[in-house]
Design a protein around this nucleic acid. Structure first.
Length: 215
DNA sequence: ACCCAGGGTCATA
DNA sequence: TATGACCATGGG
């Protein structure tokens, strides 16, 4: 069963997702850091705090006192850790001439640069690469591991990079890969939030015929 | 009163 | 290389 077929099934079920939820590339980057192991609703609250304080910019975040920044981030959890990580990211971002400067970097160099920031791991880096810089990178998260393990296509405990290669090479022939990867990851998240929380019967899952079990 | 959420770092063996 | 502790809020 092909990755493209699974995508088509999810797309037919949930429709276009239009990710990432954020107005600007920088807001997407902030959201990517804040959503680490955290429900998105709480991230929105933290981002709204930054907006209300007129602090959703790399300059304002760097200038803010650590305790002040942490208080804005409080709803998103891990607020002391994330305050530090956001400052780390903004320091790197400004040092490299922000979006204009970074947008001309080759994807692999950009990925290495993102990973050099303390607090940015592989998933956060790939969120930023795909959704802020629009590079053809497939994001692997816990939902992706769970779904494709249940579909029988992976073991689930592979290393991040191994899984990323699996998905990117499995969709190599597709055109519009950026748009495809964008929607695919968002659809996996939508499906995960849908099942099996809101629907009690797994036969109603759009992937049931492919899955033959709860996904 | 639990459990989990669109992870990552650090110390330890 | 590979575990475990730690970070912390809000919803179900």
């Amino acid at each position: 069963m092909s990755l493209k077929r699974i995508y088509n099934t999810l797309f037919k079920c949930y429709g276009p997702q239009g990710w990432w939820p954020g107005e600007t590339p920088f807001e997407i980057m902030v959201g990517a850091v804040l959503t680490q192991n955290t429900a998105w609703l709480n991230v929105e609250r933290a981002i709204n705090n930054l907006l209300d304080a007129d602090a959703l910019s790399p300059e304002a975040i760097l200038e803010a006192q650590p305790t002040q920044l942490a208080s804005w981030l409080k709803p998103s959890g891990y607020f002391n850790v994330k305050a530090k990580r956001l400052k780390n990211y903004c320091h790197w971002y400004l040092q490299n001439d922000t979006y204009q400067g970074l947008s001309v970097w080759p994807t692999e160099a950009l990925r290495s640069g993102l990973l050099s920031v303390n607090g940015v791991g592989p998933e956060t880096a790939d969120d930023i690469l795909l959704y802020a810089f629009e590079r053809p990178v497939f994001v692997i998260d816990a939902y992706t591991r769970r779904l494709f393990k249940r579909l029988g296509l992976i073991e689930g405990d592979e290393h991040y990079e191994e899984l990323r290669q699996f998905f990117e090479s499995g969709l190599r022939k597709s055109n519009e890969r950026i748009k495809l990867f964008n929607e695919y990851h968002a659809l996996i998240v939508s499906h995960a939030k849908d099942f099996c929380k809101t629907r009690p019967v797994c036969e109603q899952c759009c992937l049931f015929k492919l899955c033959q079990q709860s996904c």
